[in-house]
Design a protein around this nucleic acid. Sequence first.
DNA 1: ACAAGAGATACAGAC
DNA 2: GTTGGGTGGG
DNA 3: GTCTGTATCTCTCCCACCCAAC
Length: 571
Amino acid sequence: MPQLLKPNELSDSYYLDNFNCLIDFVFAHYETLLCDEEKHFYAQFTKLPENAQRLFIRLLSRNGDYARTTKLNYSEIPDLKKALEKLTASGFITPAHIDQIADWQSLFTRKELSGTLALPSSQIASLNPQAVATLLTTSDLFGTSPLDSLLESEHIVQINFQECYTIFRLLFFGNLHQDLSTFVLRDLGVRKFESYLTDTDNLPFQCRKQIDAHLLYYRCVDGYEFAEDTGAASLIELHAQLPEKSKSDTTLNRKIDRFTNRIARQLERENHLQDAVRIYRSNIQPPARERIARIEATIGNESAAFELCQQIEKNPADAEEKEFSQEFAARLAKRVGIDYYRPEKNKPAEIQLELPNSNLPVEFIAALHFAKSGKCFYVENSLVTGIFGLAIWDIIFAPIPGAFYHPFQSAPADFYESDFYHARESLFKQRFIDFKKGCLSKVVLTHFHNKSGIRNPLVQWPYLNRYLITLALKKIPLTDWLKLFEYLLKDIRHHRSGLPDLINFPDTGRYSLLEVKGPGDRLQKNQLRWMQFFKDSNIDHAVVNVAYLDEATSRDSETETLLTEHSIHFE
DNA sequence: ACAAGAGATACAGAC
DNA sequence: GTTGGGTGGG
DNA sequence: GTCTGTATCTCTCCCACCCAAC
Ligand SMILES: [Mn+2]
Ligand SMILES: [Mn+2]
């Protein structure tokens, strides 16, 4: 009998349904890539009675490999004992072998442990897991250990098949950071996703080797913290364990490269420069080459550093890397006393303001100042990026092969890839023609209305409202929008950030983009690049330097009124 | 959109 | 006694 | 007294609870 549900209400079998949805999808589309144990896991799970299924899912979504059965209490699982028996009989859980339990502190409270060990709880806190285990399992003259009393009325079970579930999650989501809560958040209406069709003919995993590589990568990431604490040798070993980069899996390659950079950077901090350089060299992702150049310069290898800078300049991975290579080369040349061309520095226009410190974020202080003679909004990336996202909404979610492979994506799989545009070129070309015919406002406002709250990699809904959008579309000329869009499209990954804090629409007309800087703050590289773009595109812009007239005071009533008028709310 | 970018803030060292 | 971080849950 | 590099902090639904600390 189907339940009648209010829009944001969960059915009483929600997590069972969600889990089934996940594993059924994986089994249906990836059966040939599953190993015997995984297939066994799936087959056995589907044979379990519903109550046992429920309990197992509950156990899987807890932390840790073990659970105390006395701590389990679920109103939707009436016969816990029977469910536990079923799970034990089918091998989904097993009574724990106490000598395999390494971490007793996460299973029992300090108080419980200090009681049985007859030690002050402060001392328990300072013991390492190994020590606790030893104390607990050491028998006295009568052959009894503290553990015996602790476990008198306890059953600890080991939760099995966690690895299988991990694989299923990986295959379903394509990553390990999403889990069953993703379903819940969608069904509660917290996160809305576009309702595209998933392309089951072009799923991301093609062979078992690829799956294992992903899994290994995640294992290495898990091991990072320990390796960092253990020292350089562990970090080097960790790097050696990383999966080989594959020919086709650019997503995984990118992850490996980022992680590699993280390892090498830590080696730098620990002063293992040779190893850091060696590891950076295996890597294309910025800032690997930059780091190598810096290290070479530090250890007195200026010529090697200089040469690398020239290589980078010839073939930069992105604007940031290119700028680095030019500036650093010039710096090196100067240091060695060689004459060398230095790119002229862009100094954006500046506005100096002296304002009372009303104890608000400096962006609001500045915005309220400009609001006295116009309309001013604190938008950062959200306006330009958001308008663009609304303007090309249907292109972002167009059914390109392989773009969508599960229902919880906020972007197509290739959104940040350099060929995102080319895979949709005809759609974009047509859309830009339409814009030139004057349909920009209509497309944007239609999507703003129809897609409200739905996730889109370019749209941050909380910052957008109809008034702001309408005003921006009216005050910013189409030619400027087209230039902005074109610039965004050149490198979406990097160009979606660094936009100025404020957009100002003075009463006298026009508009300008303002980056606010309080005392001690300075322009970031990407912010400066946007300023350069505005200059090249003839778009009003400035850096607003705010100095405070006084110490921070509490907000006066005048400020409160302004805040209310601008729908700004704090604490 | 893979414990991340995305921005602000703090401080040290170079010059 | 209070808080605040961690965790589980819808 | 600037300019640079680097490290560090804050934040992702939101609520109830439990436990460990200041
Ligand atoms: Mn900002
Ligand atoms: Mn700012």
